[in-house]
Amino acid sequence: MAQRDLLTFNSKGIYCPQAQVYLDPWKPVHRAIITHGHSDHARFGHRHYLTHHSNVPILRHRLGDIQVQGVAWGEVFRINGVNFSLHPAGHILGSSQVRVEYQGEVWVFTGDYKDEDDGVCTPYVPIRCHTMITECTFGIPAFKWKPQQQVFGEINSWWQQNQAEGKTSVLFGYTLGKAQRILRYLDPSIGRIYTHGAVENMTEVLRPQVKLPPTLMVTRETLTADIRGSMVVAPPSAHGSPWMRRFVPFETGTCSGWMAFRGARARRSTDRGYVLSDHCDWLGLLRSIRESGASRVICTHGYTDIFSKYLRELGYDASVENTDYEGEKEDLNSASAAEST
């Protein structure tokens, strides 16, 4: 390629050589632009963090005393002649796409994103660009999401049914993002909503920015009799832990895009699997790419080989770059991700 790429991939992250800035780097760097607060995108150890205003309290909560600057949607900041701006990605609160423009050429890094308006975060907007760096966590045609209204309808009636049977409902979802999306749509008229400590702490951080129903944190002092019939929102790692014992009798549900697979539901041994993801489904990915007008597409994480091959058949100049991003993790029990607070 004659012209140097505006964004490149190296061992530390996605790098803009012209501006000497990294996007969501996975190794410590001098200057990092962060798309959102999930731990595979917002990591420890960078000298300067730059992110959307909404993410500042999340990053501080997770990473402690860091040097972080907040910017608004669409606010252009110029580094060594390169114009950067952040645009809503619709993944979780504060999640952003990064638009990078230099000498008329435009690249967009989507971070994680979904094109469904979840009513919690600012909805995704397609950004016109020449080259799009996209995730494809659910980039095969087996993934098609139902409207969230329908899923939450099912969740609330499941809660009601459990309550009628004298059981507690325990719903698993990521601490940051999924948990608040769930809380936003639980029907508080059914009963009390309890939270795991990790969920409660993160929810407290987000309350100033999202309208959420009141929650009660499960503590040592919480009485089993009080919880019965309530809803408990907990991180996936709580499943099967001794912490769960106090809820007996209970039913469990898991909210994740992977719940589309029967095998995943069975292996997770969850009573109910709700297909609810903060990523695009198959058609969402294709639509977003089309609407960006990009001719070149770089796939970072997910079913990259398959997705990029299909994009090439559709006429895109599509390729794959390896990154350390994890998307929505299949193994919901495995360490890190949402749990590090």
Binding site: I140, A142, F143, K144, F261, R262
Partner: peptide, 16 residues
């Protein structure tokens, strides 16, 4: 490819 990933033909068809 999708069928390989889903792991079950009937399920893959139902999803796709």
């Amino acid at each position: 490819e999708s069928y390989h990933i889903v792991g079950d033909l009937a399920e893959a068809i139902a999803l796709i």
